[in-house]
Design a binder for these strands. Structure first.
Lengths: 223, 223
DNA sequence: GCAAAAGTGTTGTCGGTACACCCATGC
DNA sequence: GCATGGGTGTACCGACAACACTTTTGC
């Protein structure tokens, strides 16, 4: 092999997070092909000749979830490039972080024998170096939630402030004072009252809000 | 071309920053080979078969500056992958951010006809998409300086608190109250008095400090 | 003495945290 | 009534910005 022209494959892998059952869940597929056939892994695959890695990540996500580019938060995370990370062939992976709303219908492909959501604290063993990718994605998610409005992407179209708090609380894994949280979100002026309320609960119903804009902002809802 | 097995080259490019002449400067090389022969560009090149992109970035840096891995801050920045970014061949670039101390002796290679430091606000036109890389590196640098102790890597072995302030001030491009800055750095307890003082200046000499540890920390010296 | 940068002390203000308290719904 | 979560008001407290003031050098 000529040193200066190493043959290297380029793939993308996407850590897709959603809030389901009031906890953080991650999307995984069960691989059908070697290496790591039978193992669970992040959705991903080789990039094509005419697309950037971002386009490849969006394509992967659209293939699996049917979600279009507009409704999903996707951000490049890190490029993993250890020469030994793929035992079958030299292949680097440009890992991405994606955040999607709770209601998503999955679509299978022949590359996977199964596709499903896993509670973040109950993940199966993962193929390749995906455990490392997941750890970094988790850390990045925490940082994004703390310092930006990335939680927007995890919410359905309308939600109560209590549900928004649940999102923050699930990602940060700590309790947040709901009273201070409410005030803070309201005074930031980034949500607007949808005019509707929750119904049919055994407690005082909350107002249903929606985001004024889905635009990403470097605004911390916390401190 | 088969869609699933696109032939893609993988390169690294490194945005190397240093503080020289009390301002922020960037290391550039003048390319000798097409495309963009004669243009200035970030130091970089293809990765080899047996190394990760981080190792390739460190190798580039060692080749150009002689600095070893211990004395340099290097961090992956972003992977640039537009199919049209290199007009000669499909090649993605894993861009890195590097911070080095002021006293560095450069070493030329045949890949470049010149190698030198440029004041950040007086950069020449750059080849490839390196202007975009530089912009992102600059933004990342600002964020690192604000939220971590990354400035450590820009300082010589000993320095006065005034010089440390100059570093922050040059990167953030704003004035900082030197009195509050002093107190803050001292009370953080991350520097220690070297016992020596500045000499030969037309004003009160400052104490020379050194960092207790070069370890990267997520500690903000500012607010 | 004067200029310039190194340091120290003090004060006011802003923002977050903690928490007491009331409201609305189903059962 | 009771349980549960929604929502409002307020007081304390610490961190930081602002700035007055002193110190130490070279000329």
């Amino acid at each position: 092999m000529k040193e200066r022209a190493a043959v290297v494959g380029v793939a993308v892998d996407v850590a897709v997070f959603a809030l389901r059952n009031r906890r953080l869940e991650l999307l995984l597929g069960r691989l059908t092909r070697a290496p790591f056939a039978g193992h669970w892994a992040l959705p991903g695959g080789r990039i094509r000749g005419d697309e950037s890695v971002e386009e490849a990540a969006h394509r992967e996500l659209a293939d699996k979830t049917g979600l279009d580019t507009e409704r999903v938060f996707v951000e490049q995370l890190h490029t993993f490039s250890s020469p030994s990370r793929d035992p079958a062939s030299r292949c680097i992976s440009v890992a991405h972080l994606a955040l999607v709303p709770p209601a998503v219908t999955l679509r299978m492909e022949d590359k996977y024998s199964a596709l499903g959501w896993f509670a973040f604290h109950e993940l199966p063993p993962l193929g390749f170096d995906h455990a490392e990718i997941v750890a970094m994605a988790r850390a990045r998610l925490r940082a994004k939630i703390e310092h930006t409005n990335a939680a927007w992407s995890l919410m359905p179209p309308t939600f109560t402030l209590g549900e928004l708090l649940d999102a923050y609380s699930a990602v940060l894994e700590r309790d947040i004072d709901s009273r201070n949280f409410q005030r803070r979100v309201q005074t930031l002026g980034l949500v607007e009252d949808s005019g509707r309320m929750q119904r049919g609960l055994a407690h005082r119903p909350g107002r249903l809000f929606r985001f004024k804009s889905r635009r990403p902002l470097d605004i911390s809802v916390l401190t």
